[in-house]
């Protein structure tokens, strides 16, 4: 890095283009400085702990609870080999995929209405979609607990039995179904908003053109609207998947013992069992899972983008 005095002397002898580039660099420098506080914060409170986490996951904890050598991959092996833990991993994957898939199916119609309606309707629907975000996840979790309560007094059961749809109360609470319902409610906006944004960017003339070429509405959707909204779908699916896979509150409140997810397992290992290296290993696997899905979706989007221009 040159001092400003040096820079001035250099500027006088350099070719104009180089001087210009350098001047622009000197302009850009203070702007870059604006990011420093946040970068420092993230380095100390995020990257550094993340590194410690990764590091602890390959170390051994002795009988006094001190983490140190020898290095080992035993914790990872344990997560996969012990059936109880492996099942938690699969449950997490299953719940996340089902939630994201259901969110997609439910979000498309909502996003379409949001984009295609008059401004007033769009505003109202957006408000309805976003409004639940104001309420804390914990409150919403307990709300769902009341609705889904097992036994004849639960709201859902009461409605189903009053309408004579079922004769005996069904058990939804403390199952994977309850976790999926809760997650769907909490993360639904994360699917609708990117989808609506992608749908809004589609030129309405394209759909008119498809209709004029002989496509009935459902073919217009399958051949034009759906493929062109893929960026929104991929973004939304990735968001909902990542958030569901990493969730802790919803499975803790609605899943109980039968739908333990990785987040709950980590909490158990860290705060109940005090097995920090194993907890760290689970956390690393969870982060790896989410990163893999994100990486895959980035690759999908990049691939699509690369296919068009030369």
């Amino acid at each position: 890095m040159t001092t400003s005095d040096d820079a001035v002397t250099v500027l006088t002898v350099e070719a104009p283009a180089v001087a210009q580039r350098r001047a622009r660099w000197r302009m850009a420098l203070p702007v870059g400085l604006l990011a420093v506080p946040m970068l420092a914060f993230l380095t100390y409170f995020f990257f550094y702990p993340a590194f410690i986490l990764l590091f602890s996951s390959i170390q051994t904890q002795d009988s006094r609870g001190i983490i140190g050598r020898p290095f080992t991959l035993a914790h990872y092996a344990r997560l996969i080999n012990v059936e109880l833990y492996a099942r938690v991993l699969w449950t997490t994957l299953r719940i996340s995929i089902i939630t994201s898939a259901l969110a997609t199916v439910l979000a498309y119609p909502v996003a379409l209405v949001m984009v295609r309606s008059r401004p007033m309707v769009t505003r109202i629907i957006t408000l309805i979609v976003i409004a639940p975000l104001i309420v804390s996840v914990v409150v919403r979790g307990y709300g769902w607990q009341l609705v889904l309560q097992n036994g004849p007094k639960g709201m859902l059961n009461w409605i189903l039995m009053t309408l004579h749809i079922v004769d005996a109360p069904i058990s939804v609470l403390y199952t994977e179904v309850a976790v999926v319902i809760g997650s769907l409610h909490v993360f639904f906006p994360m699917m609708v908003l990117p989808l609506a944004s992608a749908l809004g960017k589609i030129d309405p003339n394209l759909e008119d053109a498809a209709r004029m070429l002989g496509a009935p509405w459902w073919k217009v959707f399958l051949r034009v609207t759906l493929p062109l909204s893929m960026p929104g779908f991929v973004a939304g699916f990735t968001l909902v998947f990542s958030l569901t896979a990493g969730s802790f509150v919803i499975p803790a409140i609605l899943g109980g013992a039968s739908a333990v997810m990785l987040g709950n397992l980590i909490e158990q290992q860290i705060f109940v069992v005090y097995d920090w290296p194993f907890g760290a290993a689970i956390a690393v696997v969870l982060v790896g899972l989410v990163l893999a899905v994100n990486g895959f979706s980035m690759w999908l989007l990049e691939g699509r983008r690369l296919r068009r221009p030369e």
């Binding site: 030129d203 003339n205 394209l206 008119d208 053109a209 498809a210 004029m212 051949r223 034009v224 493929p227 062109l228 699509r304 068009r308």
Partner: peptide, 12 residues
Amino acid sequence: GMLFQNYALFPH
């Protein structure tokens, strides 16, 4: 058949 001002070709 119809031609649109912005061509309306399917970009994908």
